[in-house]
Deep mutational scan, measured.
Amino acid sequence: ETFPLDVLVNTAAEDLPRGVDPSRKENFLSDEDFKAVFGMTRSAFANLPLWKQQNLKKEKGLF
């Protein structure tokens, strides 16, 4: 299941849709939104070091 970017960005855990893991908001973006937000594919993002993934998520309001 995916959700629009505005539902996930800068949203407190208690305000997220049911079933969304607040530590993994990026997994609930569509592939198109994911690429638009991070400028890379999911596989490229997954290959980044964890610290870099976290920094990007913070920068984009998805942490």
Rank of each mutant, 00 (worst) to 15 (best):
E1I: 15
E1N: 12
E1W: 07
T2H: 11
F3G: 04
L5P: 07
L5D: 03
L5K: 06
D6F: 07
V7C: 13
V7H: 07
L8Q: 04
V9K: 11
V9Y: 05
N10P: 05
T11F: 08
A12I: 09
A13N: 15
A13D: 15
A13Q: 11
E14V: 11
D15I: 07
D15H: 11
L16R: 03
P17S: 04
P17W: 03
P17E: 05
P17F: 02
R18F: 13
R18V: 14
R18H: 14
G19N: 10
V20R: 04
V20F: 06
V20T: 05
D21A: 04
D21Q: 06
D21N: 08
D21E: 06
P22T: 06
P22N: 05
K25G: 04
K25W: 04
E26A: 03
E26V: 05
N27I: 10
F28N: 07
F28D: 04
L29W: 03
S30K: 03
S30C: 06
S30F: 01
S30M: 02
D31G: 03
D33L: 05
D33N: 04
F34I: 01
F34M: 01
F34P: 00
K35V: 15
K35I: 14
A36P: 00
A36S: 13
V37N: 02
V37G: 00
G39L: 07
G39P: 00
G39F: 03
M40V: 03
T41P: 08
R42E: 02
R42S: 02
R42T: 02
S43G: 12
S43Q: 15
A44C: 10
F45I: 00
F45D: 00
F45V: 00
F45A: 00
A46T: 10
A46Y: 14
A46K: 12
N47I: 11
N47F: 08
N47S: 14
N47E: 15
L48Y: 02
L48M: 10
P49K: 01
L50R: 09
K52P: 00
Q53C: 01
Q54D: 15
L56G: 00
L56R: 01
K57E: 05
K58G: 04
K58M: 11
K58C: 14
E59N: 06
E59R: 08
K60Y: 08
K60A: 13
G61F: 03
L62T: 02
L62E: 03
F63C: 15
